[in-house]
């Protein structure tokens, strides 16, 4: 499957990934409208972590053995066996936050404005390239087929 790889040495902390993620998951999908009208209502599913000059953008790793899927009490969190993408079915989610508790990367958020649902990266499945990758001005995020990456390629960032 294709995954987002993080090149933290080139993350410049501009947070354009977060901005575009918010737009993508807004109602209007239009950047100015989304921020002017819906700013309080949209949560970014990618998060820029920053300490000093080190920074990186992280979103759901779509773990092969995803703890969130195992922990989900309502069956909302599922991993698609074909695509490998982990998604949360917001219809089924009851907001117990077990997934948040078990996520080793801390990339699942409570989406309070939209109700008690868990919000996480859906890999923008309806786009060719996830918007965070597409809009990163420094290619610090790369969308690469896991089978094509060789050992030299940056591996997924470790949790810390």
């Amino acid at each position: 499957m294709k995954k987002i790889y993080i090149k933290e040495q080139y993350c410049i902390g501009c947070r354009l990934c977060e901005i575009h993620c918010q737009v993508k998951h807004s109602k209007s999908k239009k950047i100015i409208k989304a921020f002017k009208d819906e700013k309080e209502d949209i949560v970014s599913r990618v998060l820029v972590e920053e300490v000093g000059y080190n920074s990186f953008a992280i979103q759901c790793r779509h773990c092969s053995d995803a703890p969130c899927v195992e922990a989900c009490i309502s069956g909302a969190m599922v991993k698609n066996e074909n695509t490998g993408v982990v998604t949360c079915d917001e219809e089924k989610c009851v907001g117990c936050w077990m997934c948040i508790m078990v996520c080793p990367y801390g990339v699942i958020k409570r989406d309070l404005p939209r109700g008690r649902v868990a919000s996480k990266c859906d890999l923008c499945v309806d786009e060719d390239i996830p918007v965070c990758v597409k809009n990163c001005p420094n290619e610090a995020l790369k969308f690469i087929d896991t089978s094509e990456t060789d050992s030299k390629e940056e591996v997924e960032v470790e949790s810390n």
Partner: peptide, 13 residues
């Protein structure tokens, strides 16, 4: 100001 969304990219850059 019509366009600025206060995203602060400029501030950070």
């Amino acid at each position: 100001s019509q366009k600025c969304i206060s995203c602060q990219v400029c501030v950070r850059q």
